[in-house]
Design a binder for these strands. Structure first.
Lengths: 155, 155
DNA sequence: GTAAAACCTCAACCAAAGTTGAGGTCAAGT
DNA sequence: ACTTGACCTCAACTTTGGTTGAGGTTTTAC
């Protein structure tokens, strides 16, 4: 059994090659596949063969991850790419813009926090009920698993 | 058995009170205790009683968490507070300064990433070997579980 | 034609930061 | 006295982002 050119387009990459060239472990590529972040064709012997585009896709995944976006959201964003044709530069750019906006928002929130920490230095106000850092709902949207509820106004 | 004033200093808080006043779940306070982030005295009936200082401590923990610092590091920082006496405002301020520096660093890295994403928009360069976003070691320290290794210079 | 390297699946495990539940005890109000 | 709510411990489970290993197959290279 062979003529691999029939079963699998030539110019595809094995999982090991993708791993080497993308800097991502083979196990991670398997994992991404189970999560629907990437897809592969199979040889007759059931081995993965990736279209070249996978390298860009993995690059994009890693970049998005570094901005703090969870894999599930990355998956959703990638799934929204046009089906049927290879994504264009503009498709990728649109993704980048969306993620950049999210990143901006995260940076904004961290800066706010930083400034408040600045205000609080030396005043010991972390124990005061009026401190914005102790009452995040005042100034900041809950980030992650923030405090659910603070005493209305007692103490 | 009682005379709680003997076993436990008066003016202490039960775990439920701390939960209500700090906005943190009881189970979380238990969890923090197992991680050495807070400590408690016990009544004769084995119930937790917290010194009032625990409220500030929990507030500080939550603030640090919002800056993205892992609990283990927070624990280490808190453990470095002077033993024996209650921390002073200056003690807390020193902590704040340290965390603020970390926060600054995180913000700096995210800004760098944002700018690079900016540069890359529209150029489709995520597929190019020269793109700084694909070769993070060029410009950025590995953040979290970054790519281990990128091909030396092939491709 | 055979041995080694690469690949396959599946299940188990890891860390972080908790949450949930079972089964039992303590404390407080009436 | 007794019921109810708050508390106790311990173990198991959750999510995210993977890694590790066992046991078996495929591909490649000599």
């Amino acid at each position: 059994m062979s003529n691999p050119d029939f079963a699998v387009p030539s110019g595809t990459l094995s999982v090991g090659e993708v791993a080497r060239r993308s800097g991502v472990a083979v196990s991670t590529l398997h994992f991404y596949e189970t999560k629907g972040l990437i897809r592969s064709l199979r040889t007759e012997g059931n081995q993965r063969r990736y279209p070249r585009g996978v390298l860009r896709r993995v690059a994009v995944i890693k970049v998005a991850q570094r901005t703090g976006i969870p894999l599930a959201s990355i998956q959703a964003a990638l799934a929204a790419l046009p089906q049927g044709r290879a994504p264009t530069a503009e498709d990728w750019a649109a993704l980048s813009r969306a993620w950049q906006a999210e990143l901006d928002e995260r940076i904004r929130r961290l800066n706010q926090l930083r400034d408040q920490l600045d205000d609080c230095i030396g005043c010991g106000c972390l124990s005061l009920k009026t401190c914005p850092l102790r009452n995040p709902r005042d100034a900041l949207a809950a980030q992650g698993a923030g405090p659910r509820l603070l005493e209305p106004d007692a103490d």
